[in-house]
């Protein structure tokens, strides 16, 4: 998030749209939505300068319930649409949201490559272990051998740990939250938005309808805060190589805890690496002043303003 964003003085209620919400009662999505609304208000983000992109599935409907620009995209492709908008208009505050199936299965390629790109935006994964909207098939976050109530057989495919995958993919801010702890989640969203690079927030959430294994009761007593545990996530420009290695090793170890103890909080906060647009501007200096959405196209008479004559000169027969 850039610091020059137009500030708006709004309460979290101003970020609610009046579109009727059709999520199930008790769904973790409600908590994530509330946390998002609170974070947007806390950050004072202008609604017309904030774009929330959704994938496909229950979580993908989030943009309709937010009173910001909202774009409901395609299954697995939410990060591509969001990245396009951010690249074309870097002043925009961009948030992508989607489910664990959307981001790790059908959209797995974009998940990895978005980490590589390190664009200044936030991706929130609604992680409930199942495909809810299609009635409970296993998502790639469901462990091998597990069987939720609508599955015909136990899961025989292994699982992907989203935080671990984000770590090796290059995301520079990585956090995990819990959908039913709205205050803590909203703090994590704000922190992720303030990070000048690609942030990934894994949000654990029960699906009361289809995931009868990872319920509110299952999570009870397992979650602990990394930061309260003294965990150090920061990598700054002067962090030495050994320390960087230690942070990554620790983050990987903590990410893997997923049975008796589950860590929430900030796993990685790496401000040592330039974000994509900083690198882009270094390579292509005109990008800074003439971002794609601001590139002049016509003069007052509606004619092209581009001078291609130097390029024609190169191609001329001499």
């Amino acid at each position: 998030m850039k610091h020059d964003t137009i500030k708006a003085s709004l309460s979290f209620k101003n970020y609610r749209s009046d579109y009727a919400n059709d999520w199930c009662a008790g769904c973790g999505d409600h908590g994530i939505l509330r946390a998002l609304q609170k974070a947007l208000a806390d950050l004072g983000l202008a609604r017309d300068q904030t774009a929330v992109f959704g994938g496909i599935g229950c979580s993908g409907k989030t943009p309709y319930y937010l009173n910001t620009c909202g774009i409901h995209t395609l299954h697995g492709r939410v990060l591509s649409f969001a990245a396009g908008a951010k690249l074309a208009n870097p002043a925009l505050n961009v948030i992508a949201v989607g489910g664990d199936g959307d981001g790790l299965s059908i959209g797995g390629g974009h998940f990895v490559n978005s980490g590589r790109r390190n664009l200044d935006m936030l991706y929130i994964m609604f992680n409930n272990g199942v495909y809810g909207l299609t009635k409970g098939q296993p998502a790639p976050t469901l462990r091998i051998g597990e069987r939720t109530k609508s599955m015909a057989h136990s899961n025989i495919q292994g699982y992907v740990n989203p935080v671990a995958l984000a770590l090796v993919s290059g995301y520079t801010w990585i956090g995990r939250g819990y959908a039913y702890d709205v205050p803590a989640l909203s703090v994590l969203i704000s922190a992720a938005m303030r990070h000048p690079g690609m942030a990934f927030l894994d949000v654990l959430q029960p699906c009361p309808k289809y995931n009868d294994l990872h319920t509110k009761d299952w999570y009870a007593g397992k979650l602990y805060s990394l930061q309260e545990d003294g965990y150090q996530a920061l990598i700054s420009a002067d962090t030495d190589v050994a320390m960087i290695q230690q942070v990554y090793n620790q983050a990987m170890a903590r990410a893997q805890e997923c049975e008796e103890r589950i860590a929430v909080g900030v796993f990685l906060h790496d401000v040592s690496r330039p974000d994509f647009q900083t690198q882009l501007q270094a390579m292509q200096s005109a990008y800074g002043d003439s971002t794609p959405c601001r590139q002049p196209v016509t003069d007052a008479n509606g004619r092209s303003m581009v001078d291609i004559s130097p390029l024609l000169e190169e191609l001329k027969v001499r």
């Binding site: 992109f53 774009i71 649409f81 396009g84 908008a85 074309a88 925009l92 590139q295």
Partner: peptide, 8 residues
């Protein structure tokens, strides 16, 4: 497509 939504 995402970029086109910004007017580019």
């Amino acid at each position: 497509s995402g970029a086109a939504l910004t007017g580019a």
